[in-house]
Design a protein around this nucleic acid. Structure first.
Lengths: 109, 109
DNA sequence: AAGATACATTAGTAAATGCTAATTGATTAG
DNA sequence: CTAATCAATTAGCATTTACTAATGTATCTT
């Protein structure tokens, strides 16, 4: 049995461009179904479902079945491992300090 | 010819655990050679060189040849695409606001 | 000069990955 | 009830990936 850490799962999941695009569409929607995600994605419905499974396992999305539709939404905590990992490189953020400051002001003025 | 964006290169490069471990060792060193990185890595020297090539192409490390040694160091700007990408998900950071605040205080007290 | 050391590169391979096409299970519509 | 729709799953595939072993190319040592 191979141990897979959270940061590992998140990075591996976001590394694929198609899957990342799906995640971004989910983020930009309040909720979105598989058919909607399939439309204009360039891949088949089956592929979309496979990617959603990966995203779900990585904790990046959650689902809400309703009738024959399944609504997907982004899961905020999913990005936490990535945020934590990046925080170890605080020194790298120094140069982007202004951006961060602006960001924080937007969040909590 | 396939267009590969910066965020794509960074995520793909960091997704592999072995390569990420190498990057972390480079970050935690001021400068480090290939033999040192090979030692205790569990893979051959050739594999290390291959991973370093990927990291270099992603802009995550830089090299300084000196004699027959090549010293590698972390490249701060390399993580910028990832930071920028994450900043689009500002709302996700809300819950981690305290951590961020602490981080910023450390950077600029 | 000859051997040793550091690193990069190459060819070959086993495994993982992302995809399609087809099938299945479930719910809704006519 | 039957047909259609939504989504998940499966098998098969072509491609990519990470690795080793071997070789190549400098540079240093003696």
């Amino acid at each position: 049995m191979i141990e897979v850490t959270a940061i590992d799962a998140v990075l591996r999941t976001l590394a694929d461009p198609t899957r990342r695009a799906i995640f971004e569409r989910v983020v930009n929607s309040d909720e979105i179904t598989v058919v909607e995600l399939t439309r204009g994605s360039g891949v088949t419905q089956g592929a979309i479902s496979q990617h959603l499974k990966s995203l779900k396992q990585a904790g990046l999305v959650a689902e809400r079945p309703e009738g024959r539709n399944v609504y997907y939404r982004a899961e905020p905590e999913g990005l936490a491992p990535l945020a934590d990992w990046m925080s170890h490189y605080a020194v790298f953020w120094r140069e982007r300090f202004a951006n961060l400051k602006t960001l924080l002001k937007e969040i909590d003025p």
